[in-house]
């Protein structure tokens, strides 16, 4: 089973290598982008709740390792990932925690930061990567490569165009999922 999936990925990566657009090229394009600021809308579908939750706000990325998420609707709150420290601020109170103490959370949030930075090695520490589409319309699929992480998240799909990420879809192991749409702000 394991070798089968390995073979599958080998074939997949072999096939995309022939295409004009591979993981390395995507990473270079992402890395070339530098600091980014964009509006986002995230929709969460939770089994616990009868209706989806919609959050909107702004994402800020400052190379090499700072990612900020500032929600404005429905409530103001922010998350700042700086190096190894994750600071969550809501209702005027802020909490800081070390990513190392929460490896699964680190893998989840860290994946987005690594993608923005175009760091292939960081992504491949926790995920197996596969790419499809072309430069104008690509889709990067992340599958956890360890069981601890697989108990939290089943897959992450990043999509976008050129060096811009436009969508982040996360499917969690308990069936809950979230869809984030990102529009570069002019």
């Amino acid at each position: 089973m394991k070798s089968l999936s390995a073979l599958f990925f080998l074939l997949l990566s072999a096939s995309v290598a022939h295409a004009d657009w591979d993981v390395d090229q995507l990473m270079r394009a992402l890395a070339a982008n530098g600091a980014k600021r964009a509006a986002f809308t995230e929709t969460r579908y939770l089994a616990l709740l009868d209706q989806p939750l919609v959050v909107s706000g702004e994402l800020v990325y400052v190379p090499p390792d700072r990612l900020e998420r500032h929600a404005t609707q429905p409530v103001e709150e922010s998350m700042v990932l700086d190096g190894e420290r994750l600071r969550l601020t809501r209702e005027g109170k802020s909490h800081e925690l070390g990513l190392r103490d929460y490896p699964e959370v680190a893998a989840l949030i860290g994946a987005i930061r690594a993608a923005l930075a175009g760091e292939r090695a960081a992504l491949e520490r926790d995920y197996a990567l596969s790419i499809s589409g072309d430069r104008a319309r690509w889709r990067l699929n992340l599958l956890p490569n360890n069981t601890a992480l697989a108990q939290i998240v089943l897959r992450i799909d990043l999509s976008g165009s050129e060096g811009h990420i436009e969508g982040v879809d996360v499917l969690q192991a308990d069936g809950d999922r979230s869809e984030m749409r990102i529009a570069p702000r002019q």
Binding site: L46, V55, V75, L88, L108
Partner: peptide, 12 residues
């Protein structure tokens, strides 16, 4: 509201 935030992952 917390569930909708990044901290929701801890709370869930």
């Amino acid at each position: 509201a917390l569930l909708a935030s990044p901290a929701g992952l801890f709370a869930k």
